[in-house]
């Protein structure tokens, strides 16, 4: 693992139960990098993401996080917004406030300092105008901003996004792209699953490409050449 690495995967195997979806995954995310995670439907992108976040256990290999000052790095996770049940009557602000839960003891009130931090995050993603509305009533793009604010409220070392522009209109998608660009320019390390190749080409410096249960890792210009893009497009239909 290099000195500047935030996360290193060494021959990782990911899957569910005894079924391996992707194997032999090795790559390193350096601090401040922007990495796109690509692959056709069912290639194992979300499985890999959930494994490195500890949501599902790995089936083999190693996940090594680069500790800074003895402190374990924090990953801010932005899930696919459709995974959240609309039956919950949370406002956008309440959803964003969940991001500070790791720093607030169970059963105690959220301190004013943390509430201010949530406010900063909502402001950063330009969500102050609609954050008091019910989360389930917001548009796709607005929900995505709230979920990014929630991830930022964790004070993350790595921001992990699962399809942030899927199912949102062109204007909202452009706004999310600009937001992610701004966060990256501010020094945030980002790992993003995305089907939208132009978005990945525009934002990412490196790409992890999943195909046939294996992963390739390299710079965007090398991996996203015309031949591979045709293959990916063919695989997604």
């Amino acid at each position: 693992m290099s000195a500047n690495a935030l996360l290193s995967l060494d021959r990782l195997e990911a899957g569910y139960g005894r079924s391996v979806v992707v194997s032999d995954v090795s790559f390193e995310l350096t601090k401040g990098s922007f990495t796109g995670l690509l692959g056709s439907n069912g290639a194992g992108k979300s499985t890999l993401l959930k494994t490195l976040l500890g949501i599902i256990p790995s089936l083999g290999g190693k996940i090594i996080w680069g500790a800074e000052g003895g402190k374990a790095p924090v990953a801010g996770y932005v899930p696919q917004r459709d995974s959240l049940d609309p039956i919950y009557l949370f406002s956008g602000r309440e959803v964003a406030e969940m991001g500070v839960c790791a720093r607030v003891a169970a059963g105690s009130r959220v301190p004013q300092k943390e509430k201010e931090r949530v406010n900063e995050c909502l402001k950063e993603v330009d969500a102050l105008g609609f954050c008091e509305q019910r989360f389930s009533h917001l548009s796709g793009g607005q929900k995505q901003r709230i979920l990014i604010a929630r991830a930022l409220a964790t004070n993350p070392d790595l921001l992990v996004l699962d399809e942030p522009t899927a199912g949102v209109d062109a204007a909202a998608s452009r706004a999310i792209v600009e937001l992610l660009r701004k966060l990256h320019q501010g020094g945030m390390t980002i790992l993003m699953v995305n089907h939208d190749l132009p978005v990945v080409r525009e934002l990412a410096q490196q790409v992890v490409w999943l195909a046939n249960g294996k992963a390739s890792f390299g710079p965007v210009n090398e991996l996203l050449n015309a031949e591979r893009m045709m293959g990916l497009l063919a695989g997604s239909h």
Partner: peptide, 22 residues
């Protein structure tokens, strides 16, 4: 009532709760 925030977080977004080390 005392632990409502934790119960709601785990019920609403289990994956997020895991990433927050809950």
């Amino acid at each position: 009532v005392f632990f409502r925030r934790e119960f709601l977080l785990v019920s609403f977004d289990r994956e997020m709760a895991v990433t927050l080390k809950k």
